[in-house]
């Protein structure tokens, strides 16, 4: 059999590998969302948001969870808790490093002046449960409900609505 030139063979191989990669990655569709690192480097006026991810094995199954923690800067406060809950849930769902296999925990650093569970329920999260300790107030959003409400993973990078976090002086009655 006639041998193909080495360079041509190499080129064909490269094309084949690239085509395979395209097929494997869903026909070259751009990956939505953001990495946890990118999420953690986002600047938010009046608060710091961190994605806390964990990865482990339960038997042979990979367990991935993304928790999102918010700490409001001194001199600021959360004026619209429901909008912040929705925002944080979307931040967690937008992290595209690995598909989460558990629900999302949202952690609010104390002190806060509202009940996160109530804020979540007001926003339509029905399965939310909450707890707290001396450091934080936390709520857990069930994976099934997260999928149902936020759609295809990874979700789009969310934007916090204006007025959700404000300077304390801005929010005081005039």
């Amino acid at each position: 059999m006639k041998q193909m030139p080495t360079r041509r063979r190499s080129g064909l191989r490269t094309v084949a590998i690239l085509l395979s990669l395209l097929l494997l990655t869903g026909c070259a569709q751009a990956q939505a969302g953001q990495t946890a690192k990118a999420a953690n480097s986002m600047h938010l006026a009046g608060a710091e948001v961190n994605v806390l991810s964990s990865s482990s094995y339960n038997g042979f199954a990979k367990v991935i969870s993304h928790s999102v923690r918010i700490q409001v800067d001194p001199g600021y406060e959360i004026a619209d808790p429901t909008a912040v809950v929705e925002y944080l849930a979307k931040v967690g769902w937008s992290v595209n490093d690995a598909r989460p296999t558990t629900g999302t925990t949202l952690s609010f650093a104390k002190p806060i002046s509202f009940d996160p569970v109530e804020a979540a329920r007001k926003g339509g999260w029905h399965t939310t449960s909450g707890t707290q300790n001396s450091r934080s107030s936390l709520i857990y959003l069930n994976l099934k409900e997260v999928k149902h409400r936020l759609g295809t993973w990874p979700g789009k990078i969310p934007h916090l609505p204006d007025g959700a976090i404000v300077k304390v002086s801005d929010n005081e009655p005039h």
Partner: peptide, 23 residues
Amino acid sequence: SQDWLDATNLNTAKASASAVLGG
């Protein structure tokens, strides 16, 4: 961080409770 430990412990406990005990 303690924040990470808190979030991971809670997340895992809630996921297990949901799977084993129900909603």
